[in-house]
């Protein structure tokens, strides 16, 4: 079990990470989610032992302050793989096993097992320069998993890949982590990635952890307006302002997802379309309304209105999240 207590990192007068407390249970995958520059990668580096910090990093209660990187037994996967260019795929995966003094036969067997696990069977003698971006990340993952690390640290593992590949690989990565029962800390700025991979999500902003919880929990009830905006709520307002749509079941602040307001012939609120953008399966609109001012809304492809059209909007309750 990983325990982080009161961890802070300072660069001169700048505080990159401020008094963070965090726990990762055995077998659990925790995602550190936040915008770039929020300190999440710095926190990961501090856990790895690559970054000087104050506070404590513990494994099963034992302080790791005096334990250097190479004795922590934590695996590390970088955004762009960082494979050893002078070794082939098998040589990369076997690296940690060699460091641990594992015999040749056992190494070969373990490498084959991992190549199978990450879906690259038969790639053992490929040169790393010949691999595609996705394949490189798979090899980087296999390399980190090979010595059976007690904790796997992944720093934006999928960010360097294009979107289609990223979504595909995120599912694969989640499967591999479950299958190998690995305890893992994943740093990412991508919500979908965090929610696909993680058992729990820790939201970080300005060097501070703002909210920790299961993905559904965090997604369904952001702790404050700023967090709600980061999670994709275009607008945070007081529930009372939604009265025009009829009786609403919320009190206090609520956030509106982009799908919260829909164009409907019988909608209670009228407005004029000021912008329209086509997406894969819907049209995103900006609508100027009388009561709410400029709001985001969606329409189906079939009934897509044009800029300047008058439309009426209704509220879809599944697109509204209570905040706080």
């Amino acid at each position: 079990m990983l325990g982080v207590e009161g961890l802070s990192v300072h660069y001169g007068s700048v505080t990159a990470v401020s008094d963070v407390d965090l726990m990762v249970a055995d077998g659990e995958v925790l995602a550190l989610l936040g915008p770039s520059g929020c300190g999440k990668s710095t926190l990961l580096r501090a856990v790895a032992g690559l970054q000087e910090c104050s506070g404590a990093v513990r494994w099963d209660g034992a302080d790791l302050a005096k334990v250097p990187v190479h004795r922590r037994g934590f695996g590390l996967v970088f955004q762009d793989g960082q494979l050893f260019p002078h070794r082939d795929v098998a040589g990369n995966i076997a690296f940690g096993l060699r460091m641990a003094g594992v015999g040749k036969a056992a190494r070969v067997a373990r490498v084959a097992e991992l190549l199978e696990l990450v879906g690259l069977a038969g790639y053992a003698s490929r040169r790393v320069g010949e691999l595609s971006g996705g394949e490189r990340q798979r090899v980087a993952l296999a390399r980190a998993l090979a010595p059976r690390p007690r904790l796997l640290l992944l720093d934006e593992p999928l960010s360097a890949l294009d979107r289609a590949l990223r979504e595909h690989l995120a599912v694969d990565l989640a499967r591999v982590l479950r299958l190998s029962g690995t305890t893992a800390l994943v740093v990412t700025h991508d919500h979908d990635e965090a929610f696909t991979l993680a058992d729990r999500v820790a939201l970080m902003r300005g060097g501070v952890i703002r909210q920790v919880g299961a993905p559904g929990e965090v997604w369904g009830r952001p702790v404050d307006a700023e967090t709600a905006r980061f999670l994709g709520c275009g607008r945070v307002l007081d529930a009372g302002e939604l009265a025009a749509f009829g009786g609403v079941p919320w009190a206090g602040q609520v956030g509106l997802r982009e799908s919260a307001l829909r164009v409907a012939a019988d909608g209670p609120v009228a407005g004029e379309v000021t912008a329209a953008v086509h997406r894969r399966d819907h049209v995103r609109l900006v609508v100027a309304t009388v009561g709410l001012g400029q709001v985001d809304a969606v329409a189906g492809i079939a009934e897509a209105p044009r800029v300047g059209d008058s439309v009426s909007l209704r509220l879809d309750e599944s697109g509204v999240v209570p905040v706080g």
């Binding site: 790895a48 690559l50 250097p68 190479h70 695996g75 590390l76 960082q82 940690g96 390399r143 980190a144």
Partner: peptide, 27 residues
């Protein structure tokens, strides 16, 4: 040589001398 290459080797269990031998010298 990207420093993260050395860090990757360290995370895999290579001590400072071993990192030189395995990463810097071959490269």
């Amino acid at each position: 040589v990207d420093d993260r290459l050395r860090q990757a080797a360290a995370a895999l269990g290579a001590g400072p001398w071993r990192v030189w031998r395995e990463v810097d010298i071959p490269l």
